[in-house]
Design a protein around this nucleic acid. Sequence first.
DNA 1: GAAATGTAGATGAATATGCATCTATGTAAT
DNA 2: ATTACATAGATGCATATTCATCTACATTTC
Lengths: 143, 143
Amino acid sequence: MYPSEEETKLWVALNRSQRIIYKAIDARLKEEGLPPLRWYDVLWELERTDGAGLRPFVLESKLLFEQSNLSRLIHRMVLSALIEEQKFDGDGRGKVLQITQKGRQTRQQMWEIYGPLIQRHIGRASCTFDRAVVAGALESLID
Amino acid sequence: MYPSEEETKLWVALNRSQRIIYKAIDARLKEEGLPPLRWYDVLWELERTDGAGLRPFVLESKLLFEQSNLSRLIHRMVLSALIEEQKFDGDGRGKVLQITQKGRQTRQQMWEIYGPLIQRHIGRASCTFDRAVVAGALESLID
DNA sequence: GAAATGTAGATGAATATGCATCTATGTAAT
DNA sequence: ATTACATAGATGCATATTCATCTACATTTC
């Protein structure tokens, strides 16, 4: 019923490592005058669709956003001209999000900071473990 | 310079697993009418000191809080009577935080929900990996 | 011991988040 | 077709978080 010592340690390490690395990257992006890390995910998902765009509710489940939170984030990103909204023909309630040219540029600039930091934080650790195994382990924690 | 496929996958898995599990536990605590998960950490650190109490700035670094954020969280927890503040004699600027009896009770109630959820999320995963190895790997990511 | 610098913690203002609810549209049932 | 229910997204309000700054005390330097 209650977790073992090892289970608890894993949970604590999971939290600490994620939080520390995430904060470090986010802080660095801010230093560079770039948008927060969370915006990157949106830009990347949109860029990956290669012109097809995405519905907000799809982004919501892909990226684990609260609905209202995403709604307002989209608004801010539209104001920043990184994405744009189009009517969705198949459903009067819906809209489709597209990345703009500026959005692509910004994502690229962010990646130039973000990528190397992933490398440094994740890749620099001692190679006494197999990253694929750890990644697989973490993925298996998600139901 | 840029991360490999595997490094990126580990980073994504780290984020997703932490976020999903954390949210699930936090949501469950709220359902039970208990305080948010972050409060647990504070209560636990204070309870562990066994009467000695802790200075806010120590909690801040232990638990990775923003200073102003912790300051206000402490205020809310004092209002909820889960902790109390005492003057710190050695330094006129400082204070010491103590857990109250109600705080102990609340931490216990939270653990009755929290503990089994850690067990379920972390312990239930297939045993194809050694939890200690994964925990060690994650710890090694922290500089 | 006066002045400069550093540190603990609080606070106003801006921003972000979560929750509940609302509007508008869509789908199903009768 | 009308009624009932479901879903996409927006929004008011309360709360939480961050940033910059402020106050009070401590420490160091000269």
